[in-house]
Computed example of a mutant assay.
Amino acid sequence: MMNKMKIVVAVDSFKGCVSSVELGEVIADAIQDIFPKAKIVKIPVADGGEGWVDALQPVLGGERITCLVHGPLRNQVRASYAWIEDTKTAVIEMAAASGISLMQIQEGNVMRSTTFGTGELIVDALNRGCEKICLGIGGSATNDAGIGMLQALGFHFRDKEGQEIKDGGAHLKEIADIDDSMANPLLLSCKIEVATDVRNQLYGKYEAAYMFARQKGATDEQIALLDDGLRHLANEIRKKYGVDLQDCPGSGAAGGLGGSCHLFLHAPLLSGISMLKRILHFDETIRDADLIITGEGKIDAQTEQGKLIEGILESAEKYNVPVVAITGNCAEQSEAMKKNPLLAIFSIHDAPVSLEQAMNAGYACCHVRQTIHSVMKLISFGRKTCS
């Protein structure tokens, strides 16, 4: 019976290093080395960030559309999204046009990075007659509150001199006028749903800029300036629309992009992993599984804030399926994760490594394979002991 195990492999990408699909292949091969007859179900997953399109397109079908758009620093990049003609649906991940992997992590870059390219992808989909967009907003390089995206869609944000503000979160404090009168009219006939992996509010000490801008290269001083800019924008929105974005969980996602999508595009902010599980019929797949292998690049306190592993654990607990999570960094896991009887977390590193080495795809895949080998051997030993 040992080889008849059903193992579901649902691992998020190690962002900027290895994709969900690639990790799934490596893990499946490692499992079969120990359990050659095991039934392995590979499910590419993402919670709204990098890999969002890869996860959904195999189920939804359609084709890849590639566009030349503006990257986070206005450099031209090729970005693709999934287009399903039959249902007039587009699956877009903002990371393809405005993601952290497209920008060097250098001091000051996040102050001027823009989501304009994400808006250009939306425009392309609208011009094809799009009626529904599933927009994933994880993995951003930006803290511009989605202003760049909105500008690409025809919205205007002007300073007190009547000039359009420049790119980036550094200029949010200059906004004195919000003009939605020239917004792309095709938005009216398109329903947009936003998949996000965080629930943070727009501004504050534990919210968008303070939680995420540092990993995008911001200094302490810049983080404070970015937070001030988001606070100023929220005040301008409150004055014009009577809406308080602080009341919207997830408004701080992707440097404030979540809040702008909610207000200006009338888009609900949904848990990325919950949306994915629904579309992929995830719970039905794991119902009779013996083990789930999941993971992501870093497991920390944020993992419990709407991230992928939290969503997978939620489903696993319904059917009492044990979960093994692999990661490149688990030093900051919460007490709740440590105490969860169904969860075991393994770091893929067996010795201290530099960030450069840790982010090398070959290194990561090799150590993922070694880790899964060890886990599978432990399971094998345990089954032999119990039989």
Rank of each mutant, 00 (worst) to 15 (best):
S80D: 10
V45G: 04
K39W: 00
D228Y: 00
T118F: 02
M111S: 14
N329H: 13
G108M: 03
L233K: 08
Q163R: 14
I326E: 04
E314Q: 14
E296L: 04
Y363C: 08
T219Q: 09
G62L: 01
L291I: 07
D159F: 02
L308T: 15
I137E: 08
G252T: 03
D247A: 14
F116A: 05
T294I: 01
G306S: 10
I122V: 14
I372G: 07
A351K: 15
T118M: 05
C134Y: 09
G295F: 01
A195F: 04
A336V: 09
E236Q: 15
D283S: 15
A38G: 04
E50F: 00
R214T: 11
C134L: 12
A361M: 08
L313Y: 04
T371G: 07
H171M: 09
N143L: 02
D33H: 10
G217F: 01
L378C: 12
L342S: 06
S19Q: 05
E314F: 04
T219F: 02
L102F: 05
H373K: 08
N329Y: 09
L172G: 11
I273H: 03
F155E: 09
G168C: 10
L121A: 03
I279T: 13
G49A: 05
E236W: 00
S380Y: 12
K205I: 06
S380M: 03
L270C: 14
A208K: 07
R369L: 01
D290T: 03
R214S: 13
R78I: 00
K166S: 12
L291G: 12
Y81F: 14
V21H: 02
I105R: 14
K338Q: 15
S13A: 15
Q305T: 01
I223H: 00
G306C: 05
P341N: 06
V69G: 10
G49E: 11
E161N: 14
L225F: 02
C130N: 07
E161G: 08
L226P: 10
G71H: 07
H349M: 06
G259N: 11
N184S: 12
P249L: 08
K173F: 02
S334E: 10
V69L: 07
I137C: 09
M94L: 14
I147C: 10
N184D: 15
V41D: 15
E164A: 13
C190K: 08
N360D: 15
S251R: 01
F381Q: 14
G162Q: 11
T66R: 05
G252M: 06
D247S: 11
P44S: 05
R287N: 09
I40V: 15
K191M: 04
D197H: 06
I372P: 10
S98Q: 11
E284I: 02
A141G: 08
D29V: 06
S315W: 03
S347P: 07
L313E: 13
G259S: 08
Y81P: 06
I326M: 11
S274Y: 00
G328I: 03
K37R: 13
Y363M: 06
H70C: 12
G148K: 11
D29T: 11
C134K: 11
K318D: 07
E25V: 13
E304W: 01
V194I: 15
A253I: 04
V26E: 13
I100L: 15
E120W: 00
Q201P: 06
G24D: 05
V18K: 01
V9C: 09
A96P: 02
G328F: 04
M337Q: 14
A30W: 05
G242Y: 02
V18D: 03
